[in-house]
Design a protein around this nucleic acid. Sequence first.
RNA 1: GGCCCGUUCGUUCAGCGGUUAGGACGCCGGCCUCUCACGUCGGUAACACGGGUUCGAGUCCCGUACGGGCUACCA
Length: 469
Amino acid sequence: MVKVRFAPSPTGYLHIGGARTALINWLHAKKTGGKFVLRVEDTDEERSTPEMTQAILDGLSWLGITWDEGPHFQSHNKHIHQELSYKMLANGTAYRCFCSKDELERRKNALAKPEEWRYDGKCRGISKDESDRRALAGEFFVIRCRIPEGKIEWDDVVKGKISFDASQIEDLVLLRSDASPTYNLSVVADDYSMGITHIIRGEDHISNTPKQIAIYKALGIEPPLFGHLPLILGPDKKKLSKRHGTTSVIAYKDEGILPLAMFNFLASMGASLDENRCLTREEIVERFELQKLKKSPSVFDRERLNFLNGKLIGGMPLDEIRELAAPAFKKLYPFLPFPDDKAVDLMRSRARNVPELATTLYPFAADDFYYDEKTLTKLNVESVKKNFLGLIYKLSSIEDPSWNAAEIEKALRAYAEERGIHAKELIHPSRLFLTGKGESPSIFDLFEAMGKQASLKRLERGLNFLNAG
RNA sequence: GGCCCGUUCGUUCAGCGGUUAGGACGCCGGCCUCUCACGUCGGUAACACGGGUUCGAGUCCCGUACGGGCUACCA
């Protein structure tokens, strides 16, 4: 059975890249009927915090990524990892290195090209007896993995064949001088003990893979399958980072991005889904194929995320929209009543995110809004002063039960004809008075959704405003 | 510097030896119309370069260029 894992280190929020890695793993698990396990790589005690762990969990949950197992904490397995390194020491695939950091640094800098430094294997040849003796005597040491000669290669699930010459890989440290296990050791140990079948992670781990394969082999274990995902780039084609603005996935929640939109967006990077709408998670699972992922990196395109989000909002069931918009509205305007469904339904098509929708709902709840300056200056003030009292009178003559878009339109157009003016002369100012904006949905729908009383009140307010000013 | 990975419209995803190189986002224009959005119709725009292989190459191979990643007793 397929078993995959997402193994973040809790040293920061769940960022876009991590979220995508998690998502791909999740999709592959779902697609194959496998399991998705969550493992927190908290072995860096300096930088790991419980808050960050929680933040990552929250991020995943928000996206709708659920885990079948875990979260496991890598730090809990420390002693197992230590034992493993001693096992390697015993079978000769690892050895003690007594070089101090300073000494290593010195040797490195002594090189003509220090940047080409790799551990020189100085302690490789120390005999077992001498090694034991020095260790016993209390000398500090690290345990390093003995990388055998030859090639280390694997068939990457997404990239294809990748090959490293062992000479390029240094004898990496397995156990530090404080006896704490190193990342590569811990990862191998945990992946093995958890029965992980596919290690799907970011491309930035490619160079770790030969090291880990070497450890698997030293331990006499068959390595799992590896798949390395291309990174997500910023608009400048560099690895996405804080410099590019928001990278924490959860921050998009506050920007009004819906989890499903983000899910679609992330799933579509490097994969071909239906580009034109938001799919359900199930549909995405159906279309997903690990082997078909693109090998080259993608640029994070906020425009497309927005598009997807807008599509999602436009096509959602009304009650779902209300549930999203109501809290957002409450947050913006704590003391105002939330407008009814008619208003929500009317305004949703032009909103690309939730806060935007909430903002446009304001005129339905209150009438103290400002008028858009630009639209105001374009207004034919004289015409309004001349005609609006009559318009208000005309509209007020519509009986309450007949207050609907069709009737209102009939009345307004009839009135325009009576006065010998174009309907636009009434429509545009009405729009401004009703919403404060120069653009809105159909004015007649607006009248209807707002209700007779509120509509007329807003028209009066507008007229008074112009008369006063 | 070394090693590894990559390279189709501005962005994104198709294309898997024979296509007028397609779809989407963005942008521009038309339609709809009371405005904006939606929708719809149309337009813009790409195979990094050079060599091979082949009757034929975006598609296969090799170089070059460019981009990216890694190069810790971090993960």
